[in-house]
């Protein structure tokens, strides 16, 4: 897999899955813009690591639910790199609650970041990718967007929404040489899943045919493949990387 000469923007790349994806893309030769929301120090560490591999990298603070900020972020990325080949829509949050208890704010926050944020970033890169007549957009959905999850109505709706958005944008952009695919991770060991109580984790593992949590490298490998030339004939697909949870 060779991504030399390609440039990428990864949202939420300061930690967890996004960080692993940013490093993996760089490892295959891509230059990578590292987006983060608040964790500047962590983001800097990722960019430093990428530069140490001999690739270009910079950090860019942006709340992906803010339309103006997203446009500025993409503008800066294109200005720094001269082009934009790969967008990975990874940033996401959880605000878990039972539907009965869920506050409007919890619903809105998750939809705004996890769904609207993906739309805004996709919209913002489309102009550049259309001009190039090539591009790869990779959206990080979730297994729960395919099979549902109690206590995560907001998150599940957003992640199922991302799958719909992936398919609509894949159809809209195909004629311009842009592919759009989603990855649906299962339960991956990150800060996000660290928050779960031990009991809930045990129970979850029982639902995973392969019997363990995944790690961020599993998602990063799938993202690098979808960004590579080998995936040029794949668009509008949802790739489950979930230990077999959804089949």
């Amino acid at each position: 897999m060779n991504l030399e000469g390609k440039t990428a923007l990864v949202t939420g790349a300061s930690r967890g899955i996004g960080k692993a994806i940013a490093l993996e893309l760089a490892c295959h030769g891509a230059d990578v813009a590292v987006n983060y929301a608040g964790n500047e120090q962590k983001a800097k560490e990722v960019a430093d690591e990428i530069q140490a591999m001999g690739r270009r990298s910079f950090i860019v603070q942006c709340d992906i639910s803010d339309s103006d900020a997203v446009q500025a972020m993409v503008k800066e990325t294109v200005a720094q790199f001269g082009r934009l080949d790969i967008l990975v829509n990874n940033a996401g949050i959880t605000r878990d609650n039972l539907i009965m208890r869920m506050k409007d704010q919890e619903w809105d926050d998750v939809i705004n970041t996890n769904l609207k944020g993906v739309f805004l970033c996709t919209k913002a890169v489309t102009r550049q990718m259309m001009k190039q007549r090539s591009g790869r957009i990779i959206n990080i959905s979730s297994v729960v967007g395919r099979i549902g999850n109690a206590g995560q109505a907001n998150y599940t709706a957003a992640k199922a929404g991302v799958i719909g958005l992936t398919k609509a944008s894949a159809r809209e952009l195909a004629a311009r040489g842009i592919t759009v695919n989603a990855i649906a991770p299962g339960f991956i060991a990150t800060d996000m899943t660290d928050k779960l109580p031990a009991e809930a984790k045990e129970q979850l593992i029982g639902q995973i045919p392969l019997g363990t949590l995944g790690d961020t490298a599993d998602i990063a490998a799938a993202a690098a493949f979808l960004a590579s030339d080998g995936a040029k004939y794949i668009t509008g697909q949802v790739l489950g990387v979930d230990g077999g949870m959804a089949m």
Partner: peptide, 9 residues
């Protein structure tokens, strides 16, 4: 529609 968008660009 997409051609028109590109034209404007």
């Amino acid at each position: 529609s997409l051609d028109v968008v590109e034209l404007v660009m």
